[in-house]
Measured scan of single mutants.
Amino acid sequence: NQASVVANQLIPINTALTLVMMRAEVVTPMGIPAVDIPRLVSMQVNRAVPLGTTLMPDMVKGYA
């Protein structure tokens, strides 16, 4: 099973992602693959992402 990107903290809307905000976890359903974490750094979320939420492609501006 491939790990997905999960929020390590509450990420407010329009926040630029940093490594500290994300962790890799095997979850269902799968979200953004953990291998993409370096690519996500400095991209912004388009909604508030609660702690423990799996990041989906439509939550990150410019990802999809």
Rank of each mutant, 00 (worst) to 15 (best):
M30A: 07
M22V: 09
Q2P: 15
V60N: 01
L17K: 00
L19S: 09
D58M: 12
V20N: 12
N1G: 15
Q44C: 07
V5M: 02
A16M: 11
L51E: 13
I37S: 04
V35Q: 14
V20G: 11
A3N: 12
M22D: 01
L51F: 11
A7N: 01
A24S: 14
R47W: 06
S4T: 09
M22T: 02
R23F: 05
D58C: 15
I32F: 03
L40M: 07
M43C: 08
T18N: 04
L51G: 14
L51T: 12
T15E: 08
V45D: 01
M43Y: 13
R23T: 07
P38H: 12
N8Q: 12
I13H: 11
P29Y: 12
D58S: 09
Q2L: 10
A24D: 15
M59H: 09
T15H: 09
E25D: 13
Q2M: 13
K61P: 10
R39D: 04
A64T: 15
E25N: 05
V26M: 13
M56K: 08
M22P: 00
V6F: 02
Q9Y: 08
D58A: 09
L19T: 10
S42N: 07
M30V: 13
T15P: 01
M22Q: 01
S42C: 15
P50D: 11
V6N: 01
D58H: 05
V35H: 13
S4R: 02
P50R: 09
V49K: 00
V35S: 13
M56A: 14
A7Y: 01
N46Y: 11
D36C: 05
A64L: 15
G31H: 01
L10F: 09
A3S: 13
N8H: 14
R39L: 14
I37K: 04
M59E: 03
R39N: 06
I37R: 04
K61F: 07
I32Y: 02
A34L: 03
T54I: 15
S42P: 03
P33M: 07
L51Q: 09
M59L: 08
N46M: 06
V49I: 11
M30K: 03
T18W: 03
N1W: 08
P57T: 05
N1C: 05
P33K: 07
P38G: 10
M59Y: 13
T53I: 12
L40E: 01
L40G: 00
G62Q: 13
V20E: 13
L40Q: 00
